[in-house]
Deep mutational scan, measured.
Amino acid sequence: KTSLNPNDLGPLPPGWEERIHLDGRTFYIDHNSKITQWEDPRLQNPAITGP
């Protein structure tokens, strides 16, 4: 199984920011909706992941 390299996905969507949590995990901030999440928003785009 090959793992996706986030660098291959291009930039984050407008308004998003990638940060490192105190425990070392990466999380994502959506400044548009004022939410945070652990999942990379680029992986949730149907145009990238397919049907």
Rank of each mutant, 00 (worst) to 15 (best):
L12P: 02
P41Y: 00
A47I: 09
P14D: 14
K1E: 04
H31E: 07
E18K: 06
R19G: 09
N7Y: 05
Y28S: 04
N45Y: 09
N7W: 04
G50C: 06
W38M: 10
P13Q: 02
L4D: 11
T26A: 12
A47S: 12
I48G: 14
L43R: 10
E39N: 13
Q37P: 03
T49H: 11
P51N: 06
P46A: 12
P51G: 15
T26D: 02
P14F: 12
I35M: 07
G15E: 04
I29E: 11
A47G: 14
W38K: 13
D23E: 02
I35N: 12
G10W: 04
R25M: 03
R19P: 00
G10S: 07
P14Q: 09
N32P: 02
K34H: 11
K1A: 01
T36C: 15
W38L: 09
K34V: 02
D30N: 15
D40L: 02
G24W: 00
L12S: 02
P46T: 12
R42I: 00
N32T: 13
T49G: 12
F27Y: 15
E39I: 07
H21A: 15
D40G: 01
D23I: 01
S3E: 05
I29C: 10
W38A: 13
Q37W: 03
R25T: 12
E39D: 11
W16M: 04
Y28I: 07
R25K: 10
A47C: 12
E17K: 02
Q44G: 13
N45T: 13
R42E: 01
T36I: 04
D40H: 09
G15D: 04
S3T: 09
D30C: 09
L43C: 11
K34G: 13
H21W: 12
H31Y: 04
N7K: 12
I35T: 14
N5D: 04
I29D: 04
E39W: 04
L12W: 01
R25H: 05
L12H: 00
P41T: 00
W38S: 12
S33F: 03
K34W: 03
N5C: 12
Q37T: 15
N7I: 09
N45Q: 11
D40I: 02
T36N: 04
L22N: 07
W16N: 08
G50E: 15
K1L: 06
K1T: 06
N5Y: 07
D30W: 02
I20R: 13
A47L: 11
R19Q: 05
W16C: 03
P13V: 00
L22Q: 15
S33P: 02
P6I: 14
S3P: 06
D23F: 00
P11R: 09
P6S: 15
P41K: 00
A47W: 06
R42H: 02
L43A: 13
D8E: 13
D40R: 07
G10P: 05
H21L: 06
D8G: 11
D40P: 04
E18L: 01
D40C: 02
H21M: 10
G15I: 04
P11L: 04
T49W: 08
I35Q: 14
Q44M: 12
S33W: 01
K34E: 07
I20N: 04
A47Q: 15
P51M: 15
G50W: 10
T36Y: 03
L9M: 05
A47N: 14
G24C: 00
G24K: 03
E39C: 08
P41V: 01
P46R: 13
L22I: 11
H21R: 10
N45I: 11
I20Y: 09
D40T: 00
P41E: 01
P6L: 12
N5I: 07
H21P: 02
F27R: 09
Q44V: 10
Y28K: 06
W16Y: 04
R25G: 07
G15Q: 06
I35D: 10
K34N: 12
G24A: 02
G10Y: 02
R25S: 12
F27M: 12
N32Y: 07
L12M: 10
L22P: 15
L12Y: 01
P14C: 11
D40E: 02
R19H: 04
E18C: 07
H31M: 13
R42K: 05
T36L: 03
D23W: 01
T2K: 12
G24Q: 01
G24Y: 01
F27S: 11
P13D: 06
L22Y: 14
A47F: 08
L4N: 06
P46N: 07
A47K: 08
S3R: 05
Y28N: 01
W16F: 06
K34L: 06
S3I: 09
P6Q: 08
G24H: 00
Q37I: 01
Q44D: 14
L22W: 09
L4G: 10
K34D: 12
L12E: 03
I29Y: 13
S3D: 11
R19T: 05
E39V: 07
L22F: 07
G50F: 15
N32E: 13
T26L: 10
I35E: 09
E39A: 10
L4M: 12
D8K: 13
I29T: 09
I20V: 15
L22G: 15
S33G: 05
D8Y: 08
N7L: 08
H21E: 12
E39G: 09
T26M: 10
G24I: 00
Q44S: 12
P14H: 09
T2M: 09
A47V: 12
E18D: 02
I20H: 10
P14L: 08
R25Q: 08
F27T: 11
P14S: 12
W16G: 08
D30I: 00
Q37S: 13
K1D: 08
L12K: 03
P46G: 14
D8P: 08
K1M: 05
N5R: 06
G10C: 06
D8M: 06
F27G: 08
D23H: 02
P41I: 00
T36A: 05
G15S: 05
P41C: 02
T36G: 08
Y28C: 00
G10K: 07
F27N: 08
H31K: 15
N5H: 13
T36S: 13
D30T: 01
A47P: 14
T36F: 07
P11S: 11
N32H: 06
P46C: 11
W16E: 05
H31W: 04
R25P: 03
Y28P: 07
Y28D: 04
E39P: 04
I35S: 11
P11H: 02
R19D: 04
P46M: 15
R42W: 00
K34Y: 05
I48V: 15
Y28W: 13
L9V: 05
Q37D: 03
T49Y: 06
T2N: 15
D23G: 05
L4S: 11
E17P: 00
G15F: 03
G15M: 04
G15P: 04
I29M: 10
S3C: 05
D8R: 13
R42G: 02
W16H: 05
N7V: 10
E18F: 01
I29V: 14
W38I: 09
E18P: 03
N5E: 14
G10E: 08
H21N: 07
E17N: 02
T49L: 11
I48Q: 15
L43F: 11
N32A: 05
G15H: 04
